[in-house]
Amino acid sequence: MVIFALCLTALVLTAVLLGIQLFGQVAFNPALRAVDATIYIQIKQSFDITAPRIAKPVMLLCLAAALATLVTAVVSSSMMVTGASALSLTALVIALLAVVRGDLPINQTMANWSAEEPPENWRAVRTSWERFFALRTGASCLALLATVVAVLASATELS
């Protein structure tokens, strides 16, 4: 029963994380591609101040839930839940690495840009940031799918 509750918690948190990222991937980022450098920089700098207030705690809670699920699955010798939870945790770590090694350094660079005098390579930097964002969104999607498998496997073990 505990492992099922942990799996469900991990599922909800991972779904929230992916929802945040999918909004960026399919709505926010395409909208920003349609504006000029001045507007892009102003919106991106503002967004990078507010978005981490939501995304950071959700990511940390996802990691904690995935780790707790994995540890519980290992202790209870649940092979299917262990494998799915390990995959989910690995995917979340990849998403976190994309943030730490890609998104954040690029965000710090963009934070120093002047909207009135954008750098010549602003589009190339934006494209690089979008690649890391896509990587973390894809990794979060994999984490969600793996967590669904863990939930189903743990539900099967309950019956």
Rank of each mutant, 00 (worst) to 15 (best):
V75Q: 11
S128Q: 14
P119R: 08
W129F: 04
A95C: 01
L17C: 08
P118F: 03
V75E: 11
A68K: 11
A86S: 12
I49L: 14
A84P: 12
A34Q: 13
E130M: 06
A111V: 07
L87D: 06
Q42F: 07
A124G: 02
D103S: 14
P52E: 00
L96V: 09
S85L: 00
L87H: 00
I39V: 15
Q25M: 11
T90S: 14
I49P: 12
L96R: 04
M110D: 03
V99H: 14
L89R: 02
L17V: 04
A64M: 10
T69E: 00
S128W: 10
G19T: 05
L61G: 08
A34Y: 00
V58G: 04
E116N: 15
W113S: 03
S46N: 08
Q21M: 09
D48G: 10
A91F: 05
I106D: 02
V35D: 03
V81A: 11
L22F: 02
R136L: 01
K44F: 14
S78D: 13
A64D: 05
L96C: 12
V35A: 07
Q45W: 01
G138S: 11
A31C: 01
F23W: 11
S85A: 10
G102E: 09
Q42D: 05
T50Y: 15
I20C: 08
T90E: 02
A91G: 02
A111N: 11
T72G: 12
R126C: 00
K44A: 11
A37W: 03
L96T: 10
R123F: 06
Q108F: 09
T72I: 07
V100D: 04
I49E: 14
N121W: 07
T72S: 15
A86P: 08
Q25L: 13
L61S: 09
E117A: 15
S128F: 11
E120I: 06
S114P: 02
F132W: 09
M110N: 10
S85F: 06
V58P: 01
P118M: 05
V75G: 04
